[in-house]
Simulated scan of single mutants.
Amino acid sequence: MLLHRERHLVERIGWLRAAILGANDGIVSTASLIVGVAAAAARPSDILLTGIAGLVAGAMSMAAGEYVSVSSQADTEAADLEREAGEIAADPEAEIAELAAIYVRRGLNDETATAVAHQLMAHDALAAHAHDELGLVSGMKARPVQAALTSAVTFSAGAGLPLLIALGAPPTWVAPAVATGALVSLAGLGAIGAAAGGAGRLRAAGRVAIWGALAMAVTSAVGAAVGASL
């Protein structure tokens, strides 16, 4: 029987989430830092130093955070699989009945469900339970190193944009130039992420831009207040 290969967008969710989060956080946090420091009437050299420090610290923080959180997910998945393997070894008939009950709930009759459960258990018992009982899908498997590297690289790329704008803008225009560039970039990033995931672009672009604008507005207000008090 000739089968055609299908690729579903959900297969991208592991690296796509980390990439969008990293780039978004890089733009928002670095642009907010620059706008906040600029609002405090800091010198151009101090603004750039703050932005560079934010890029380095943020990239490392994103990598560490993603690695730790996704590693916890991977550990939980491994523990569930180990537990399931023990249950299969201890009582395979009960595990066949458990699979059959799952297939009955999905619409198969008792006879067909039992036959399917027997065949899948004979082929790869643990894989059958991982997929149908635990809901562990190979395309969505936790990959800590991939998530950490993706987040660090995309954070750095996102953070580099407001830094470049700050470097090229006149000193009196640093804050508005960075804020404008960040908002445009965030909207574009939201649209790209939505397109890659097969979702609506306009809504995603607006959502990301609004939260970015809020972050920069709050940071600017704090920077202006602190600068005025010093």
Rank of each mutant, 00 (worst) to 15 (best):
M1D: 14
L2E: 14
R7Y: 11
I13V: 15
I20W: 00
I27Q: 03
I27N: 09
V35T: 08
G36Y: 01
V37T: 10
P44E: 13
S45P: 06
I47F: 04
L49V: 12
G51W: 12
A57Q: 13
A64S: 12
V68W: 07
A79N: 07
L81A: 05
E82H: 12
P92Q: 08
P92T: 14
A94W: 02
I102Q: 05
V104C: 13
R106M: 11
L108D: 10
E111H: 14
T114Y: 12
T114P: 00
H118P: 10
Q119G: 10
Q119I: 13
H123D: 15
L126K: 07
L126P: 05
A128L: 06
L134S: 00
G135P: 03
G135C: 10
K141Q: 13
P144K: 00
A147P: 02
V153R: 08
A157W: 10
G160T: 14
L163C: 09
A166N: 08
P171Y: 00
P171C: 06
P176H: 06
A179R: 08
S185T: 12
L186G: 00
L186M: 08
A191D: 01
G193D: 03
G200S: 09
R201D: 04
A205D: 01
A205H: 03
A213D: 04
L214W: 08
A217K: 07
V218M: 08
T219D: 09
A221L: 15
V226A: 09
S229W: 06
L230F: 14
